[in-house]
Design a protein around this nucleic acid. Structure first.
Lengths: 148, 148
DNA sequence: CGAACTGGTTTCGAATCAAAACCTACTAGT
DNA sequence: ACTAGTAGGTTTTGATTCGAAACCAGTTCG
């Protein structure tokens, strides 16, 4: 894979960091509250070397970090950094698309509960800072801009 | 990889369909207006067999479809279906996270222009149907629900 | 103390990736 | 009509990655 790390496209940079099946599922589990190596491993049924590799990559890219000791034990935990927490919308987006496009009628799926209502989270939509909704086709590729 | 196609988790189903670096980049390009095999190939620098494989998978899962003839030529085009167009938010999410988290100060990145303002797209946020913003930590894993 | 658990690393065969070569259909130029 | 070049692939062939299992050192539990 080419030099994604230095590409000028933000999508490519993001994809390079989290565009992997296991990585995305680890992030999902992290948002569901999982923190420890063995929790991820049991939840995902992932080989330990792969999990080790993905977690190390997430830590290296600043999306997760290891915490010395969460509970009483001396084992450490993998937790999302602020940068990682900002991926919340990504997991929500994956979930909502899947709910609407990846299940047949009658199939069961696991919902996400909106704790402000107690009901399954309704469809969320993107709005601009001024509150106007963002619709498909309202954007086009622009030119280059320098990072703040 | 386990039986993702039948998993009850919408995130896993989605990840199974689009959770691949090339697939996500193909989708980005598709939203940028690319339609033809050679356009994707030149834009991404991807090997032709891999591109062929990924496009076939996207067509098989109903995210893209082949159109007989877009312009005068008899070659066909790969276009997003309605199901594929619904992935717009996903690409936007990847882009916005990358803009804010994957570039150093001074680095240049390619923006997305908001055609309703002519300016680069500002940060978009998720709102519920009633307009209330969705914040991190306002959700928790729920139970099973049957598809409509 | 011994057993089990945690958080890995190593090994190695299997699967996947990707560069290159090849191929066929079409199209453009002369 | 002949030829070159492009479009859209498939096949072949190494190189890389994946992942199951084995192994291992430290920790905690009984």
């Amino acid at each position: 894979m080419a030099r994604m790390r230095t590409a000028p496209c933000p999508v490519m940079r993001t994809v390079d960091l989290v565009g992997d099946k296991w990585t995305l599922l680890i992030l999902r589990d992290a948002f569901d509250g999982l923190r420890r190596f063995s929790q991820f491993q049991r939840s995902l049924g992932i080989a330990k070397n792969i999990l080790s590799d993905r977690l190390a990559a997430l830590v290296a890219s600043g999306i997760m970090r290891t915490e010395p000791a969460s509970d009483g034990t001396s084992y450490h935990a993998y937790v999302l950094t602020e940068k990682g927490l900002e991926l919340f919308d990504l997991i929500v987006t994956l979930r909502q698309w899947g709910e609407r496009n990846a299940f047949e009628s009658g199939e069961e799926y696991r919902t996400l509960i909106d704790e402000t209502t107690g009901e399954p989270l309704a469809r969320v939509t993107y709005v601009r800072p001024d509150g106007r909704p963002l619709r498909r086709g309202e954007t086009r590729l622009g030119d280059f801009r320098s990072m703040d």
